[in-house]
C-alpha cells in the first residue's frame, strides 16, 4: 500500500484582535500527525467547531492569511508547499465540502462542477464528463440548470460529491459530509464514500458524528482540544479492551448502545501546559499536569497518554 498523505506535527494557529485591539494568539491544531493510504478511509473525529476543517484547508493551501502553520505535509512522498498544493488541488486532491454554501449562489451547479475552462472545446469535453458523473449519482439533466439554493439536501450532497469526483482525484477530503441530512441520505453518503475506497482512492473523512466514523472508516483519529490523542482501527472500537485513551472510552460509552454515559467537563480552550485531557481524566498521573505526552505507537495504535508505553508486539 502506498502512502497517499502524510501529515507530520502539523500545528495551526491564528492571530486575532479583540476588544481594544489587543492581540490574541489562538492555537487550533497542535502537533497533528496522521496518514492516509490508498484504498483506505481515515476519519478524524472531534467535536464540532473544534477546527478540524482547518486540516483540510491546510492540505489544500486555502488557509486565511492570518494563520500560522508549522509541520510538514507530504503527498505520495512529495513534500507539499503552497505551489504544489495549488497544482494538486482540484486534480489529485479534491474536497467534498460541508454544505451547499460552498457553491456560488449565482452560478448554475453544472457550470460550477465543470469549473474554469480555457476554451469552448475544453468546456464541451468537461460537460460530457460532468453529465456522466452526475447521472452516475442519479442527478438528471434538469439538475444541471439549477442554482444551489434550489437543491434539496440530498441532491446538494450528490452535487458536491460529483463535483469533487469530476477530475478523478486520488485523495478525497470529505469535510463533515453528513450533518443536516436525513438518515437515508446519510446511509447513501456512507455507501458512496465506501465505494470510492473500493476504487482505490484514499479518503480523509472529517466528522463529529461517531457512528458515521465507525460505519465508514478503516482507522479513526480522535481529535481533542487541538490534539490527536489516539489513532485506532475502526474494528477495535467494537471491543473496549482495545480502546486505550480514557477520552475515547468516554466517547464510546456515550454511544446509545452503551447506555449514554456522558462525561463531565469541557475541552480546554486555552493552551495548556500538560495533557489536554488532564482536567477530566480518571486515570491521570502526577506528571500529566505539566508535561505533555507525545503521540506514540503502542502495538500499532497511536496513543497520546503516559499510561501507555511505546511497544511493538511484532505484528
Amino acid at each position: 500500500m502506498e502512502k497517499l498523505l502524510e501529515v507530520n506535527n502539523l500545528s495551526i494557529s491564528f492571530t486575532q484582535y479583540v476588544q481594544g485591539l489587543n492581540r490574541n494568539e489562538s492555537k487550533v491544531i497542535s502537533d497533528l500527525t496522521i496518514d492516509v493510504n490508498e484504498n483506505e478511509i481515515v476519519a478524524i473525529l472531534g467535536s464540532s467547531g473544534s477546527g478540524k476543517s482547518l486540516l483540510a484547508h491546510s492540505i489544500l493551501g486555502i488557509l486565511p492569511y492570518n494563520s500560522h502553520v508549522t509541520g510538514t505535509l507530504k503527498f505520495k512522498g512529495k513534500t507539499l508547499n503552497q505551489e504544489i498544493k495549488e497544482e494538486l488541488r482540484g486534480h489529485e486532491i479534491c474536497l467534498i465540502p460541508q454544505s451547499v454554501n460552498f457553491l456560488d449562489p449565482l452560478m448554475k451547479v453544472s457550470d460550477q462542477a465543470i469549473g474554469e475552462c480555457e476554451n469552448e472545446e475544453e468546456y464541451n469535453r468537461k460537460k460530457i464528463k460532468q453529465r456522466e458523473v452526475f447521472s452516475k449519482y442519479g442527478l438528471n439533466e434538469s439538475v444541471d440548470d439549477l442554482y444551489p439554493f434550489e437543491l434539496s439536501g440530498g441532491m446538494a450532497r450528490k452535487v458536491l460529491l460529483s463535483t469533487a469526483l469530476l477530475n478523478d482525484p486520488d485523495l478525497l477530503i470529505a469535510d463533515e459530509p453528513t450533518p443536516g441530512l436525513d438518515s437515508k441520505s446519510v446511509e447513501e453518503t456512507i455507501e458512496d464514500i465506501k465505494n470510492l475506497k473500493e476504487k482505490g482512492k484514499g479518503v480523509l473523512l472529517i466528522t463529529h458524528e461517531i457512528d458515521v466514523a465507525l460505519k465508514t472508516a478503516d482507522r479513526i483519529a480522535i481529535f481533542y482540544s487541538g490534539y490527536v490523542i489516539e489513532i485506532n482501527k475502526a474494528e477495535n472500537f467494537k471491543n473496549k479492551e482495545n480502546i486505550l485513551h480514557p477520552y475515547t472510552n468516554a466517547l464510546i460509552n456515550a454511544l446509545p448502545e452503551n447506555g449514554f454515559k456522558l462525561t463531565e467537563g469541557v475541552q480546554p480552550l486555552d493552551i495548556v501546559e500538560g495533557c489536554p485531557y488532564y482536567e477530566n481524566c480518571p486515570i491521570r498521573l502526577e506528571k500529566c499536569e505539566n508535561t505533555k505526552p507525545e503521540l506514540i505507537d503502542h502495538n500499532g495504535i497511536m496513543i497520546r497518554c503516559f499510561n501507555f508505553k511505546e511497544a511493538n508486539d511484532g505484528t
Partner: peptide, 11 residues
C-alpha cells in the same frame, strides 16, 4: 465558503 471551494477545486 464558495470562494474557498472554488480554490479547492483548483480554479
Amino acid at each position: 465558503d464558495y470562494f474557498l471551494f472554488a480554490q479547492a477545486r483548483g480554479e
